[in-house]
Write a protein that binds this DNA or RNA. Structure first.
Lengths: 189, 189
DNA sequence: TTGACTACCTACCTGTTGGTAGGTAAGCAA
DNA sequence: TTGCTTACCTACCAACAGGTAGGTAGTCAA
């Protein structure tokens, strides 16, 4: 049953392509080259590009939420949880990859609606995790916020997303960590 | 001499397309539809798409640096200068437009090298303006920084760029202002 | 042993891409 | 009047996009 193997290889490779070249700029032909399977055979696994795109986001979302859950479960103080969260971004950028939904967000007007919704959901999940983590930190008196947890969460997400874009354009991943650290430190207390 | 008219109409329309759909996802055919000129005639003004893309960035950069210069010249305190700077982004997003180089940065791996260099330069110009403005604020004792001017500048740019991406994906431009304000307030003092 | 199913293939389709060849009509300078 | 330039046009082109039709070889359950 090679099904799963090939399918996940396609997903993995497509993810890399989207995260480096963008969704609009990657094609079934690119995938075909890299996986060593004919273009038409890709349609056997993913009948449409939209379907592939959605499967891509779903799998990414799945992995990411798992990591977030694991991180939440850890017994660590809030700030170090946040910094670990930030390292997800810094790390992938150091590997030469944009965060998936950052890469997609730029082309969002070009994306099919089903994909737009997933991108939106992605950002909502992140905001909610950050907000919950911040609330917890406040409740445990590890943190004092200058602003609402919601606004602070959006600030952190924005900084991280933006630092990724800037780092990407400057081809200098080292931008991310200090920017995010400063942002975390600035939340209050 | 209609030359200038059509040419700048093309530039303006192309800019809108790039800032909404992305560089990879817009075509000469799109432009042809919107300007009411045949596809081939666009090649008369801009022989290649790369040339058009570069002219686009150059004109945007030109306008932006003019606005930055004007803003620098104003007699206003540093923080309000920074907030005005932030409103450039918030404003264009409210008009339904991504910041140009944010839109381009995502597809940067797909862009021709000449365009990549311009995107990079764009970010450098912004960082330099922010850094200079921050230094001035410190020198005039209007501001006290927790971090180096350079790092603080990168933080501000990142926040703004990222807030634009998040706002774009969530289709909610109101994200930007509070995030940036909080970021400015957090710089120190 | 048959028949359904999976994973791939070759061959092909239509629409679109950026780009070219070559022509036309108008303006303008000598 | 001639000749050059500008701004557009029609009519193409090859390459590539996503997608389809139909076939083959292997696996597996009844």
């Amino acid at each position: 049953m090679m099904h799963t193997d090939t399918r996940s290889a396609l997903l993995a490779e497509a993810e890399i392509l989207v995260r480096t070249k963008g969704y609009a700029a990657f094609s079934y032909a690119d995938l075909s080259d890299r996986i060593g399977i004919r273009k038409a055979s890709i349609h056997h696994h993913f009948p449409t590009k939209e379907g592939l795109g959605n499967a891509l986001i779903d799998s990414y979302l799945d992995r990411f939420t798992n990591e977030l859950d694991a991180l939440s479960a850890k017994r660590a103080d809030t700030k170090s949880k946040l910094l670990t969260y930030g390292d997800f971004f810094a790390g992938s950028l150091r590997d030469g990859l944009m965060p998936l939904c950052g890469a997609l967000a730029a082309d969002v007007a070009y994306l099919p609606v089903s994909m737009q919704q997933r991108v939106k959901k992605f950002f909502e999940i992140h905001t909610e995790w950050l907000e919950a983590t911040l609330r917890e930190g406040v409740a445990q008196d590890q943190l004092h916020l200058n602003s609402s947890p919601r606004k602070s969460a959006l600030l952190l997400l924005s900084t991280l997303q933006g630092a990724s874009v800037v780092a990407w354009a400057l081809k200098d991943p080292s931008v991310i960590r200090p920017a995010f650290k400063q942002s975390v430190d600035s939340l209050g207390k």
